[in-house]
């Protein structure tokens, strides 16, 4: 029973971080920009979500505000992406530094959003899961079974919207910007605007995942952002290593599955007795190991080709 709860718990977390992975995928893989804004925008999403959810206390409205809070979180995240994008394209700040600057500034902004409190709780209020929780019993397993489909729906909507977007003319221009900027300019596309748009979409999705996490945990924590970008990158690289990266759809599915695999792996290691304080180190190490596997895999493949050519 304990393992079932644990397993369902890591799937629940994995699905939330899969949304995060989609956002990081847009900046890291589509735009080819390692965007550190993520550590800030993830918390911005959580902060906006809890503050907006709290509006139900004076105003009522059932789950209207929790659901609206997800959209507001996306928009707030998009704004943080636009700031990084403008710093990078208009002021020519290198992308890494632009992300660091926004992320640092966001630490204060997030506290301001949360009314100068390091944590804000929405315990006892309606959240996006409330109607479904009411349908099931109060034991841990059935609660998780009520929560998971809701997260799955949010993930599915995000995925479909992203796939659709990347196949539109705008989305294609966005992908080309990350692939070959010279060519994009020669095709009369404003590459700078595309980067700003891409970072807006990326951080919007990241903030959405932060909001879903806040709804799931019933609180927002101003300090919870540290290392978020590494979790996103880990999910993407694990996904690519195990599930491939042949096409855009393959890439996106890989990122989602990678996030779930990552979460399951983490909970197994923690279950084996690793103290929780090692969690961030573990995240970083997983990225390094996954990259090692990718690089060696490519080397082995090349060696195989060489050996096959020798035989001919």
């Amino acid at each position: 029973m304990q393992y079932l709860t644990l397993g369902l718990g890591s799937i629940e977390q994995g699905l939330i971080y899969a949304i995060l992975a989609l956002g990081v995928f847009v900046s890291l893989r589509v735009l080819d920009i390692p965007d550190l804004t993520v550590d800030g925008s993830f918390v911005t999403g959580a902060a906006v979500s809890v503050m907006f959810t709290q509006l139900q206390e004076p105003l009522g409205g059932g789950i209207l505000f929790p659901v609206l809070s997800l959209i507001m979180a996306f928009l707030a995240g998009a704004i943080t992406g636009i700031i990084t994008g403008l710093l990078h394209t208009r002021l020519k700040v290198p992308a890494l530094l632009a992300g660091i600057l926004t992320m640092t500034g966001l630490y204060s902004i997030n506290l301001i959003i949360m009314g100068d409190k390091p944590t804000v709780s929405i315990n006892g209020m309606n959240n996006i899961f409330t109607p479904f929780m009411d349908m099931v019993g109060s034991d841990a397993v059935s609660r998780k079974l009520a929560i998971i489909p809701v997260i799955l729906v949010v993930l599915l909507i995000t995925t479909l919207a992203l796939v659709w977007f990347l196949r539109t003319q705008k989305g294609m221009a966005l992908r080309a910007t990350g692939d070959n900027e010279e060519m994009v300019k020669a095709s009369s596309i404003n590459a700078d605007n595309m980067k700003v748009l891409g970072l807006a979409v990326a951080n919007g999705i990241v903030a959405l995942s932060g909001a879903v996490l806040a709804q799931d945990q019933n609180f927002a924590d101003a300090k919870s952002g540290v290392g978020t970008v590494v979790v996103g990158i880990a999910s993407i690289i694990i996904g690519e290593t195990i599930f491939g990266k042949r096409s855009i759809i393959n890439n996106i599915v890989s990122a989602i599955l990678g996030a779930i695999v990552y979460r399951i792996f983490i909970s197994i290691v923690l279950q084996l007795g690793l103290p929780a304080s090692y969690f961030k180190l573990l995240s970083a190490l997983i990225v390094v190991i996954a990259i090692c596997v990718q690089v060696t895999g490519e080397k082995i493949a090349r060696k195989k080709v060489r050996r096959a050519n020798k035989k001919c």
Binding site: F165, T168, Q169, M172, S187
Partner: peptide, 13 residues
């Protein structure tokens, strides 16, 4: 991409 040169890139496929 190049066939769309000179046009506004919208949300069409």
């Amino acid at each position: 991409l190049s066939y769309g040169r000179g046009t506004r890139r919208g949300f069409g496929i």
